[in-house]
Design a protein around this nucleic acid. Structure first.
Lengths: 233, 233
DNA sequence: ACAAAAGTGTTCGGAATACACCCATGT
DNA sequence: ACATGGGTGTATTCCGAACACTTTTGT
């Protein structure tokens, strides 16, 4: 990168950070990953994982990098959410935060175990502690986006293992949407998309009747997407 | 604002701009307002109106201010769209742009007439010239958002006069969505929301049979919104 | 045998779609 | 009188919602 650009400007500039709302699903409730801040400001408070955008990386790259550094998570669903820029949202000065949200599968990933000696913990979406900065607002926006998007994009599968049962899938939708769904109607609707592959396996973790396992047919979905198909639940 | 914050950081910072996709509707097609750049970089090229975020204003305020400065538009629908931050999107150096889109009514507002001697012009969405920076990408994202959102939020009315005919409303939806709609079905659906107030007026601009005028019942919509009502077309 | 969780069909009402003619007005 | 654009109704299909019992399996 050139140190001096041809038309560069001199003026005061804000700092730009990325903050990441990491959602996980434990089979019953939606969880959010929070970091206990080791430094001021808000030392000791819980906050979303995040950090400053470097000069030579895109914002998406910054979000991926911070997620990896703070939670060791890689190759997960990550999408830009909204940019928060009230002048006094950070006591350090003018800091604009580009918020992202991530969806991860708790069985495959254990961000807390791999965590770089930081205090990270999962909190149920219903029991979030007091958060640093405007992170409550960011979290609300992320949940709102997830609630809306799960109905018309197949992003719920990101929160489950590759193999899952229909009961698990329904529990996930109920937890995200915060409503109860009719079992028969849910199954009919999800199967009518013809995007679940029935496996020759039952879930050994079922404690009574063994539940049928399925996986999401991503290849078929991607193919249909090109033709303008819309996933709708 | 304090000059020195208690926990302030010293590190290189990107510039942050706002760029605004201004949509208008002329009764037939969707138009976009573009500014012919008077300065480098991309001098002489068409670009979205926009400019740098100041240190003491929120991003929303910056977008409102730039919109007013460059187009004299005030009190219009304005919503944050997405933040674009590829490291080389601006030859001046690291510039992150928070994009907004605005919906304006061309009858009430004439941004080009009130324009501060800048070269601004309306372009049909189908005939956009080559644009500066990554503004094509921003414009595509804005149109995509508008297409999606017009189906579940009553934002189309922002593009029409307060009083409008059903034919005008349908033309608007057809222009935004780029599809043809059935006249009888469209009218039934829109009237079933019970959010249009039939006025005791006919449109004098109709050249044959005088068309019935309506206005959008915003008060009723706001009241229903509080109860969780969703506008759906 | 029984308790617990998985799995399965049908009915009904309302919404979406497809479709063609009459009416008001200016020329 | 006619050409132009505004305005209207019905029949059919499809989808969402409501609803209860059987099957499998571990104890």
């Amino acid at each position: 990168m050139d140190k001096e650009k041809k038309y560069s400007y001199k003026h005061p500039r804000p700092s730009v950070t990325v903050d990441c709302v990491v959602f996980g699903f434990d089979g019953t409730t939606i969880k959010v990953l929070l970091i206990n801040r080791g430094i001021e400001p808000f030392k000791g408070k819980w906050a979303l994982p995040g950090g400053f955008v470097q000069m030579d990386e895109s914002i998406d790259e910054a979000a991926k990098r911070e997620l990896k550094e703070e939670t060791s998570l890689e190759n997960v669903f990550l999408e830009q959410l909204y940019t928060f820029g009230e002048p006094n949202r950070d006591p350090r000065g003018r800091v604009i935060s580009v918020a992202y949200y991530a969806l991860i599968n708790l069985d495959k990933n254990d961000p807390i175990a791999g965590d770089d000696a930081q205090k990270a913990a999962w909190f149920s979406l219903k029991k979030i502690p007091s958060l640093a900065f405007d992170h409550h607002e960011i979290l609300r926006a992320a949940h709102y986006r997830l609630k809306g998007k799960i109905r018309y994009r197949p992003i719920g599968f990101e929160l489950l293992s590759d193999k899952f049962t229909l009961v698990q899938l329904q529990n996930l939708y109920e937890a995200v949407l915060e409503i109860l769904l009719d079992k028969r109607n849910f199954r009919r609707k999800i199967m009518s998309t013809d995007l679940l592959i029935e496996l020759n396996e039952k879930d050994p973790k079922s404690i009574r009747k063994k539940a049928q396992l399925y996986k999401f047919d991503k290849a078929k979905f991607d193919e249909l997407s090109l033709k303008g198909f819309n996933f709708e639940i």
